[in-house]
Design a protein around this nucleic acid. Sequence first.
DNA 1: TTTTGAGTTGTTCGA
DNA 2: GTCGAACAACTCAAA
Length: 475
Amino acid sequence: MGCAIVWLRRDLRLADQPAISAAIERGYLPIPVYIHAPAEEGAWRPGAASGAWLDRSLRALDHDLRELGSRLTVRKGASLVCLRALIAESAAEAVFWNRLYEPATRARDSAIKQALRSDGVLVESFNAAQLCEPWTVQTGQGTPYKVFTPFWRNASAHLEMLAPPTAAPPTLPTPPLLASLPIDALKLRSPLGWDGEFWAHWTPGEAGARARLDRFIDEAVDRYHDDRNRPDLAGTSGLSAHLHFGEISPRQCVHALREIEFSPSQRAHADHFVRELGWREFSTHLLYHFPHTAEADLNPKFGSFGWAEPDPDLLSAWQQGRTGVPIVDAGMRELWQSGWMHNRVRMIVASLLTKNLRYHWRHGAAWFWDTLVDADLANNTQGWQWSAGTGADAAPYFRIFNPVTQGERFDPDGVYVRRWVPELSALPNAIIHSPWSDPTTLARLAPAYPRRPIVDLRESREAALAAYSASREKV
DNA sequence: TTTTGAGTTGTTCGA
DNA sequence: GTCGAACAACTCAAA
């Protein structure tokens, strides 16, 4: 029986695992391999929070493989060098992997595919991460979509024919014993322990992902449309990091929802969740077709926009949740402490940074990249560009979030603010989202909290409107 | 080629 | 407190 290397990257699961399935179906003995090569992702090598998650996800994967009789072989160094060494050591005849879609990983993978094929090795790649691959969805003109609604109309048609996901194999053959690094040797875990709080919220790995999906289906999906915007409730799926690392696939999510008998109104809520998966697809496709957008504005009109030079003190106040705007500080502290932030709040903190402070979105994207456990280049890029108004959306330039209004609407009782900003916990609801409006109560009940926001919300809104308006006239 | 309808997520003001 | 209008025009995608 010949061996096949299964090169695992961000597909850290055993169910619905096309690369492993392909190896088995073609009669090979699969050798599951992880190669640590962060430098190959260029400027967007995984950040610290992402590394902390990966550490645990790899351990979970190795554990799961061992339960089935296999094991994870771990290496570090240049991917091609490691793959060639592994092929020589195991006499493998084939290499299989599941595709990645970022500019740097695509370039690397296609170079490796070419090199190994010229070595005479069978190489094949598969789709494990997308409902639709980027080259399969295009407009009547053959161009990529830049507007979500027509994109999703088109992509939804593909969904009708989505094949059901495969189950994990009941057992796996034991691969040849090859030299393997302990996962500790990858130094993904911080010795400082800043991620200690994360794991009260998250369980990396395939079992944790499945449990999260099951809980979402049991408890929240039938109210998703209403509750997904409420950071004070557990209204979202919480699957973003699991999806990023491929511990679960969007196909598995869609299929799990199809299996359930919902009432028509519940079905509408479930469909809304699938539509959010559609946004994940859309982001991947946009970055695939417009690879420069991880660094540059998708909308070229913003090339000459008057962004402000960041004041290091203000940027740091934003990062650390000391802006004096409760909903913003709650979000930034949720991010720091748990490695994640509710999507509604991501938009609010992004609006403050890009509109009120008028800092370029890349400053926010860089911070999120390092601190989010779900940091994903396509989603992070498109999310920030959407917020800044430079992305794929006919966003009216005057759409500037008022963090007080947003807080009152989506965290009506201040539960979310009090959870993450405990020094505000004694404030009455009436001023929980705008404590500066009652300075004496603020001073008495929350003496440690900033007296006023780092930026005047009304003035900065006016200034941002003027700047966006001026930039339109200039072009 | 030209035309036409439409576009995730908002805020403020005044009736 | 609730509601509609104004904010202004542009690009996209399909007919």
